[in-house]
Amino acid sequence: MNILVITNMFPSKQKPYSGLFVKNQFEELKKTYRDDSLDCYAMERKFTSKVGSLIKYSKFFLNFIFKYVFTSSKYDIIHVHFFYPTVILAYIYKYLKNKNIKIIVTFHGSDIYQNDGHLYRSLLKGVDKYIVVNSQFKKYIHAYLGKDADVEFLPAGISEIFRPTKITKKYDLIYAGSFYSIKGFDLLAKILTSLNKPLNIAIVGSGPLERLINEDIKRVHNVHLIKNASHEQLLELYNASRFLINTSRSEAFGLSICEAMKCGVPCIATNTDGAKEQVIDGENGFILGDFNEIFDDITPISDLVYKTLDYPLNKYHALSDSAEKSARKWTLPNVCKRLHEIYEEV
């Protein structure tokens, strides 16, 4: 059985964390398959203009045809990450090279949220297996194709490196993610502005909204800004923190939530699909209200932050233990074991 993974989301020097979860999953799968039975065709993510993106995708499509269609290589399964327009390559291979090939697609979020056109729906129909990174996405696929569509919830998976370690808790809160509006970085800044009691907070990531962590915030709180953290650094930072705070407007799964919870760090999160998939309110973390409600009235979340930071030790340990246990099933070996079974089934 020969498998080709295709994705338009892969890390590069410019964007080292963009699509890293796809790369990590592929490398974990390589441990199961021979070098010549599993291949990956990927487009690295880079900063480009609209014209640059058009040129980039044109090269991506043409190179695929010359590399995989006009050669002797033959695949039994194509696994596409990020549905549109990448899935078109799978159809090109199917109709020009191997009409019996099976097409599997993993939907990661924006490829479901932002598409509803005729071409999108038509391309959906030829997929043999639909993998979604949160169970809410099943409703979207079933709405398009009916209840008989073969849809399965399976997130990308997290590294086994994430685990509880016995180090001192230096940070009250940790934020791990890009500094963009979609990640709610503006809400994070607003929350920190509203908190008058000094906190130690680790902010891990980078992006254009870094300026929102201004001098007013830094005068009140002890802010530690960490850019380009490795998995090893994240392991230490998570374990040194009492709570992860996730302020996203939209989150398909939220790998940082899963990573932190696997380290025994409970999460305080906005009410997104990804957070609801992992966080059980009051059991392994806390789900806040909808983003817009919180943004308009910050008082409840400020009160919750203070409340959780004053949690009795026994209650905190219960949250921590529950968080770690609930994240175990989503380590990369477990996810890739199920992927291998899916490949065999189709």
Rank of each mutant, 00 (worst) to 15 (best):
F243D: 04
V220W: 03
E232Y: 06
E215V: 06
L234P: 00
L188S: 08
I245Q: 04
K190S: 12
S250M: 12
K262V: 00
I245M: 07
N228Q: 14
L187E: 09
C263P: 06
L212E: 14
D216N: 14
G207T: 11
L255K: 13
I182Y: 03
E232G: 03
I182M: 07
G184F: 07
I191E: 00
D186F: 00
F243Y: 15
L212R: 02
L209V: 07
A260T: 07
L255R: 08
F253R: 06
I226V: 15
L244R: 01
N196K: 15
L255E: 01
A202D: 10
P198K: 05
L234M: 15
K218F: 00
I245W: 03
V265T: 09
M261T: 11
C263K: 13
S248A: 13
E232S: 10
H221M: 11
D186I: 01
I191H: 01
G205H: 11
L235H: 13
I226H: 14
N228I: 05
V265I: 15
L237C: 11
R249P: 01
L209K: 12
S256N: 14
V265H: 04
H221D: 09
A252E: 07
E259M: 12
N214D: 15
S241N: 08
K227Q: 12
K197E: 15
G254S: 13
L188I: 13
L209A: 07
S241W: 03
G264A: 10
F253Q: 03
L244S: 10
K218L: 01
K262C: 07
T193L: 11
C263H: 05
L255A: 08
S256P: 00
N214Y: 00
L234E: 05
